[in-house]
Nucleic acid binder design. Structure first.
Lengths: 172, 172
DNA sequence: GGGATTCATTTTAAGGTTCAAATTTATAGG
DNA sequence: CCTATAAATTTGAACCTTAAAATGAATCCC
């Protein structure tokens, strides 16, 4: 269950003789990154459900709106949440039905809709956000400020690298 | 707010005076970690679909089986994939229907089923895995070996911290 | 103005995901 | 044995998610 990298005598320091097609360290890095994200995301999902009876996607959507008091269009939402348009349509419908979201036509563009939190939605979100912030602090309690600083820098580099690779493959 | 059975009474100098809202750096770290994972996962999903006509969850399941030639039980699979039992049941059904998976009763436990890749499934997975490894290398091409080493170490620490926090909350 | 194009959104079909309840089998105690 | 408990899996309901096609509106360009 516990993967202990005990430095096998195989590749101790022979990076020069790298065979083509050996990207084992990158692969292991990716799996570790994914495991961290999945582990934490699952626990956040569980706690949101049990303590607030809300799903994680709904919380995420409300979090975007909370940062944007003037409201956002559905397209903006889907872009920031990194999910599909149809996804946001459905989530929005359910949250409007619950009275947590307001939805109105954009005055300048009749194709677009502006969505924003209702007062009740904002109140509900703020309570959840407070708890959420505490959970995150718990999860990362063993990391020093220097650890977090280093991770922020390295993940920024990681993100930039991935974005470049993806943009190169998919030129829009 | 949270009632935990067996908590010792609060004493006068616990962190009651800690300012709420100063967990901003942890929160930003979490969002950045999640963004990296979501970005890369989405692109992998897209490429698997376009180049191999397979979904990411199916690829993930086959990847687990590829590492375990003797086969695995559904429970083992769900634990390693960090998804629910019912989820694995459905995924397995579809992959068996496609002829990529074999499913047989465990000889020692009639409750359990052993699942493994068929020869065709293994062949298909290997081709996908080769491409997948190349994609990952692309995504992380701008990271130096030292970057990856540092990230591996820091993410191991992150994972351990989160696991500790989650185990503390959910002794089960 | 009018046709082509692009853009914001919705719709539809298929699949993925969770949770909780139900089912079936194993194991432990008496 | 027999009952209680635990374990492995399945089922059902609700929801999330995507991709692709469709709809309706803005914009561009002559």
């Amino acid at each position: 269950m516990q993967e202990t990298t005990g430095t096998p005598p195989l590749d101790a320091e022979t990076k020069v003789t790298e065979r083509p097609g050996d990207h084992e360290s990158e692969l292991r890095f990716w799996l570790r990154l994914l495991t961290c994200a999945t582990l934490i995301e699952g626990e956040i999902r569980r706690r949101l459900r049990h303590e607030f009876e809300v799903t994680l996607p709904r919380f995420d959507l409300m979090a975007q709106l909370d940062k944007s008091p003037g409201g956002m269009t559905l397209g903006e939402l889907s872009q920031r949440m990194m999910v599909s348009n149809g996804n946001v349509t459905g989530l929005t419908e359910r949250l409007v039905a619950l009275g947590l979201l307001d939805r109105r036509q954009s005055p300048s563009d009749r194709r677009a809709q502006l969505v924003s939190l209702t007062p009740e939605g904002r109140r509900a979100f703020r309570a959840m956000a407070r708890a959420h912030e505490g959970w995150i602090a718990e999860f990362f309690a063993d990391l020093t400020p220097a650890d977090i600083e280093a991770l922020m820098r390295l993940l920024a580099k990681t993100k930039a690298s991935a974005r470049r690779a993806i943009a190169a493959e998919t030129p829009r």
